[in-house]
Write a protein that binds this DNA or RNA. Structure first.
Lengths: 193, 193
DNA sequence: CACATATGATTCACGAGTAAATTACCTGCT
DNA sequence: AGCAGGTAATTTACTCGTGAATCATATGTG
């Protein structure tokens, strides 16, 4: 497992424990075990938020590992694919700032990625005629074909990863996450204080 | 938001879009908009897994930003806190390898963190008497106090972050994520092929 | 008992991302 | 017109984590 280590999307303050012991076939998920450890040590605290947040983080970490596979096959990192995907799905050109917002990364990171992707012939840049500070980026034909070629494999992976839940459960999970995400996106600024 | 950028826990292949346009007060969550863009471009593909996976990733990214705040106040990064937390909740000493597994990071990363945390007097190392390759790491009093001091603030943040969902909803979300996570942890090795 | 092999921890070289500074350009104000 | 201040993109210096070696030790095998 040390092979495809995830980034730091790991723990939220409630990391997780495979068990430490030799018997690895954890029946319940690992987060439950971690939360229980915390409860034993701090009986006074309400640890219930960990059950949600810990699992979200752990799921995100695992899913990313799994999803990296089809991308790596195509020689792309996830952030690179996110960038290309933003261009593909919006259908029109985007400026570097817009790409930064779309992919939730810093402007500097976008600059670097654009350099690489341009060298590989996947995107093209064009200067704005009115405002010469801004650039416009668009997919080349090769870039669009690459994205379109990867996407089905990506979705197949995701479907396989979620196959443990049936249709209605998935719908409910999506809905709950949707309301949570809506709240988070709205409140985030406020919480950051 | 460009301020406290998260790592790469970003998009799963379905990044997200605040709108690009000036009207930023997205009512629904941003993932819905992204999925809709994909559907418009690729009407043939089943994009439903994005609704779940995209949201998981986005929630993870946002929650991590929020939770970084109380940690930074204490001068700790999240991975550092995860390491200390693993020691605290298990209650006993752990070897570097065990810490790596608990925190889902590489051995090299653990080595570096241990060096820093040792210099700050938060953890102590002890060599094993039988097997002189292994080390045993334990919290110092200062380390334990630091963790115990931070934890309540951490949980408060988490509770606040989840306040958009009521009790039953949280329970259901936790349960669904639990089964998903259980499946993922079981199947991951298989999927990695 | 020596040697091949495996394992725990560490070190090293590198790639990737960030924040802060920098460059280049636009725009509102007087 | 000219300048103050803001914004887009990039560059710079730095941190952090990783994968691949490396060191030190343990264990099984002939």
């Amino acid at each position: 497992m040390t092979a495809t280590e995830g980034p730091s999307a790991t723990g939220t303050g409630e990391p997780s424990a495979p068990g430490g012991g030799p018997a690895g076939h954890a029946r319940g998920d690992t987060v439950a075990a971690v939360v229980q450890q915390w409860r034993a040590v701090h009986p006074g605290l309400d640890t219930s938020p960990m059950e949600v947040i810990g699992r979200i983080n752990r799921c995100a970490a695992l899913l990313q590992q799994a999803e990296d596979a089809p991308l790596r096959r195509a020689g792309l990192t996830r952030p690179e694919f996110d960038l290309l995907g933003a261009l593909r799905r919006t259908g029109h050109e985007l400026t570097p700032s817009e790409l930064a917002r779309e992919t939730f990364s810093s402007g500097a990171a976008v600059t670097k990625r654009l350099k690489q992707l341009t060298e590989r012939g996947l995107v093209e840049r064009r200067g704005d005629t009115r405002d010469r500070r801004v650039a416009h980026v668009r997919l080349t034909d090769a870039g669009r074909e690459l994205v379109d070629g990867i996407l089905p494999a990506q979705l197949a992976y995701e479907t396989a990863a979620l196959s443990g839940l049936d249709g209605p459960e998935l719908g409910e999970l999506a809905a709950l996450l949707g309301t949570l995400l809506g709240q988070l996106e709205g409140r985030l600024g406020a919480l950051r204080a």
